[in-house]
Design a protein around this nucleic acid. Structure first.
Length: 347
DNA sequence: AACGCGGGGCC
DNA sequence: GGCCCAGCGTT
């Protein structure tokens, strides 16, 4: 039996029952695919259900506010996905009359839909013969066929894409694409793959050559940036000080507190730090350290300090980015995880 | 081609 | 602590 048939046979015996597999509605599949980008199924599943409940049709999504979308997305990360979905939902209403496209060439033009997602939607919703190439597929193909080109090199991406596309010819596209990804997720896992019970092990290059734990190859690692965030919590008459984060940095468009970012762990003890605080909150202001958190992200480590403000005055004309809003309204806004965690404990 | 973008789970 | 997860957009 060839590779594809083994994969499909394995899939029929071992597949999970996932909600987006029981539909060919391109909108629903799009919802699931965007949510699952760089996201584990278990983490994305509750968000998928929540979004489908709030926005049953693409029209409902298109009519939502960005704040509402980001609020529903809160906690999932990579928030540009949510913003791009709103943009694309509007596009689908305007350019496609509310009918979500199912052809690869149309899908690839939409914001937030790249090669993987266009292949996924077009194959699942339309049985178009486009091979998905995601992290699972890279791993399975690299190990089974012994492809040793790095998966994140230009040549590697080309090789894997061509190999994947050659394998899907003459297959049922939807079934085969689902199967190879599920096989990668459950059987041919990154760590501790289940080789001893794998039906493909006898013809697997990596198993034969004892390279399971080094394949696939990947070039270098991301450099992690360290940052120091000092947040200031001003509460007065059921209102709290807040600001919206600007483009060009993490958590774009989401809401946090007035912030002084420092360049290291010591700087907040120095006079300049106090000058900034007095500039923002007046000369009579007092601060009290409320909590410290080390917030770990893939590309950044953020050391966060929360200071409570006392006896403060804000000149809202001078500091137009800072707003004072009802605490209950503030809680309804979208916040990054480190902020929503703080809110739960302190507000 | 390289980089920025979240949060969580696993080893 | 490092790696990976149904990747994509920007520069």
């Amino acid at each position: 039996m060839n590779f594809q048939n083994e994969i499909i046979k394995w899939y029929k015996l071992n597949k999970r029952d996932l909600p987006w597999r029981s539909t060919t509605d391109a909108y629903v599949i799009w919802l699931s695919e965007i949510i699952l980008q760089q996201t584990r199924v278990e983490q994305g599943l509750p968000y998928f259900n929540k979004f489908l409940q709030h926005f049953p049709k693409v029209e409902d999504f298109a009519n939502a506010s960005e704040t509402h979308v980001l609020k529903l997305w809160q906690g999932l990360g990579y928030y540009s996905r949510g913003r791009n979905m709103l943009f694309t939902a509007k596009q689908v209403m305007e350019l496609h009359g509310g009918i979500f496209p199912v052809k690869y060439d149309e899908l690839i033009k939409l914001k937030g839909i790249g090669e993987y997602t266009a292949a996924a939607i077009s194959s699942f919703a339309n049985n178009q013969s486009k091979a998905v190439v995601d992290g699972n597929v890279f791993r399975v193909l690299s190990r089974y066929f012994g492809v040793e080109e790095p998966i994140n090199s230009t040549l590697g991406k080309k090789e894997f894409t061509e190999l994947a596309q050659s394998l899907i010819e003459d297959q049922q596209p939807s079934l085969y694409n689902q199967a190879i990804m599920e096989f990668g997720a459950l059987q041919c896992k990154p760590k501790s793959p289940l080789c001893s019970i794998c039906p493909l092990r006898l013809n697997c290059f990596a198993f034969k050559h004892n390279k399971v734990d080094i394949l696939p190859l990947k070039l270098k690692k991301v450099k992690i940036r360290e940052r120091w965030f000092n947040y200031f919590i001003g509460v007065k008459d059921d209102h709290v000080l807040t600001k919206q984060r600007k483009p060009g940095d993490i958590w774009e468009q989401m809401y946090d507190f007035p912030l002084i970012e420092t360049l290291d762990n010591e700087e907040y003890l120095k006079p300049d730090f106090w000058n900034q605080i007095k500039y923002l909150f007046g000369n009579e202001v007092n601060i009290k350290l409320l909590s410290q958190k080390k917030h770990l992200l893939t590309h950044q480590i953020i050391y966060v300090q929360f200071f409570g403000l006392d006896n403060y005055i804000v000149n809202f004309n001078l500091h137009a980015e800072i707003k004072s809003v009802l605490i209950e309204d503030f809680k309804a806004l979208p916040h990054p995880k480190v902020i929503s965690n703080f809110i739960e404990t302190y507000l």
